[in-house]
Amino acid sequence: MSIWKTRCEAGAAGLLAVAAGLGVRVALGGSVAKYAGDALYAVLVYTLVVLVAPRIRPARAAVAATLVSWGVEFFQLTGLPARWSEESVVARLVLGSTFNAPDLLWYAVGAGACWAVHRGLSGGRGRMRAAREEK
């Protein structure tokens, strides 16, 4: 697949993740919407990782998306995102405001779902498969 096509698909998936995340919050509410939003946040981060590095392997993209999402969550412990969220809706959507440990699980769920879809779409290509084919 060409880099351009991969980037276009990642961009489209990112827009869908944003729309789904906002839609879930409006349609469902409560903890279901919150944790679905967390998973979709990781989906968005995953798509941004692929957008920046279109040749990245699905497993590496999933790890990167999980670590970035976790980094944002732990950044909330500083209190800065809460302060910024009071003044900006964008800051609230991007950085959140308060640390919540269960969010860490849901970020991993979202990144894992992306890994599975990405791996399936790429025909399961990866180092492990290539190594098996060489034997």
Rank of each mutant, 00 (worst) to 15 (best):
P54I: 01
G21R: 14
S88V: 10
Y41R: 03
S85T: 13
E86D: 15
A101V: 13
L44R: 02
V117N: 05
W70I: 00
V94M: 05
C114D: 03
V50H: 08
G29N: 10
K135F: 09
N100D: 12
R55A: 09
E9S: 13
P81A: 05
K34W: 03
R57C: 03
R55N: 05
T66R: 02
R127N: 11
G11A: 15
R132C: 04
K5Y: 10
L16T: 07
V49Q: 01
G14P: 08
L40D: 11
A108T: 08
P58F: 09
V63C: 05
L22M: 13
L104V: 02
S31Y: 12
L80N: 03
G23C: 00
G120Q: 02
I3F: 07
A111Y: 00
A59I: 11
E9Y: 12
S31R: 09
T98V: 14
G71I: 01
D38R: 01
L80F: 10
L28F: 15
G79I: 09
F74M: 00
V45H: 00
G29F: 04
A64H: 02
S122F: 03
L40C: 06
G21D: 05
V49I: 11
S31N: 11
S122Q: 04
R55E: 06
L44F: 15
G21N: 11
L16P: 02
A61M: 10
R92N: 14
G37C: 08
V50P: 04
A113V: 14
W106T: 06
S85C: 12
V89N: 04
A13Q: 03
R83A: 12
G126E: 13
